[in-house]
Simulated scan of single mutants.
Amino acid sequence: MARKAKPGDGHALKRFRWWQMFSRSLFHLQLSAAAGTTQLWSVDVRLGGDSNGEVWAQLYLDGRNQARSKLPAAFAIPGGTIEVATSNYGVKRCHYVSDDGTSRVLMPDPASAEGRRARLDRKRPTLSRAIGFVSVVVLVVALVLGVPQLIEDITRIPPVAEAIGTFVSPIHLPVWMNISLIVAAIVASTERALRMRYNWILDGGLFDGGD
């Protein structure tokens, strides 16, 4: 459920810096306004969260802060709503849903990690598709090899074992390989998050606790 947005304080949108590549996501939406003018709406998400670890989305109009909200967020703007949600790996949804029900993804800032990944997709589509395919394969392998071991660990907990018995996994990998699988899965899900691809089984099955 989307959180209630709070009014903004009018501060200026800060420029995206290269060192914020994996700690900040910035998206833009250009909409037609009255008398042939345009409005530039921007959504800024600091993925590291505030001092309390809470992740906020900030909404800007032509570079000035209009509203802020904890995630998932739904910002009402003229003609529709901007919906924002994250996973543990980045932004999984940043869409403008118009009043007639049509939806479109906001454009990532060119300097952001999402923007650079989108540029690779435009300039090297074959390579981009290959990277996307590898990401899916890595996540499928991590699930197939990891889930049986996880179930065994859970059923070894005394109350669970007493209630349903103990499951013995047919797969037992060395610690270094399990760690490698986890790291590879995190990298793969992060790559998918840069394209706002999210599947609750692939990207959220073992390692994600996102909204």
Score class of each variant (00 low, 15 high):
residue 39 Q to K: 12
residue 140 V to Y: 05
residue 169 S to Q: 06
residue 188 A to R: 05
residue 21 M to N: 10
residue 22 F to E: 13
residue 125 P to K: 02
residue 33 A to P: 03
residue 34 A to Y: 07
residue 86 T to W: 03
residue 158 P to K: 06
residue 90 G to V: 01
residue 111 A to E: 05
residue 205 G to T: 10
residue 25 S to N: 11
residue 114 E to L: 03
residue 116 R to T: 15
residue 145 L to P: 04
residue 101 G to N: 04
residue 47 L to E: 13
residue 26 L to M: 14
residue 92 K to L: 11
residue 161 A to R: 07
residue 78 P to S: 04
residue 129 R to V: 12
residue 138 V to Y: 01
residue 49 G to L: 09
residue 16 F to K: 05
residue 86 T to Y: 03
residue 146 G to M: 03
residue 121 D to T: 15
residue 43 V to H: 01
residue 200 W to C: 04
residue 179 I to K: 15
residue 82 I to G: 07
residue 11 H to E: 15
residue 46 R to H: 14
residue 210 G to F: 02
residue 193 A to K: 00
residue 98 S to D: 12
residue 202 L to W: 00
residue 49 G to M: 05
residue 78 P to F: 08
residue 136 V to M: 04
residue 128 S to T: 00
residue 40 L to F: 00
residue 1 M to I: 06
residue 146 G to A: 10
residue 186 I to E: 11
residue 185 A to G: 00
residue 67 A to V: 11
residue 65 N to G: 14
residue 110 P to W: 08
residue 203 D to A: 03
residue 112 S to M: 01
residue 181 L to D: 04
residue 195 R to K: 13
residue 70 K to A: 11
residue 39 Q to A: 15
residue 128 S to E: 10
residue 17 R to T: 07
residue 146 G to C: 05
residue 81 T to Q: 14
residue 209 G to H: 13
residue 191 E to L: 13
residue 175 V to N: 12
residue 29 L to T: 02
residue 74 A to R: 13
residue 151 I to L: 15
residue 197 R to Y: 00
residue 209 G to F: 13
residue 44 D to S: 09
residue 96 Y to F: 15
residue 33 A to M: 06
residue 126 T to I: 10
residue 100 D to A: 09
residue 176 W to E: 12
residue 130 A to W: 10
residue 4 K to V: 15
residue 199 N to W: 04
residue 3 R to L: 04
residue 65 N to S: 14
residue 196 M to Q: 12
residue 161 A to V: 05
residue 52 N to D: 08
residue 63 G to K: 06
residue 113 A to C: 01
residue 198 Y to W: 07
residue 88 N to A: 13
residue 7 P to Y: 08
residue 74 A to E: 12
residue 93 R to P: 00
residue 156 R to H: 13
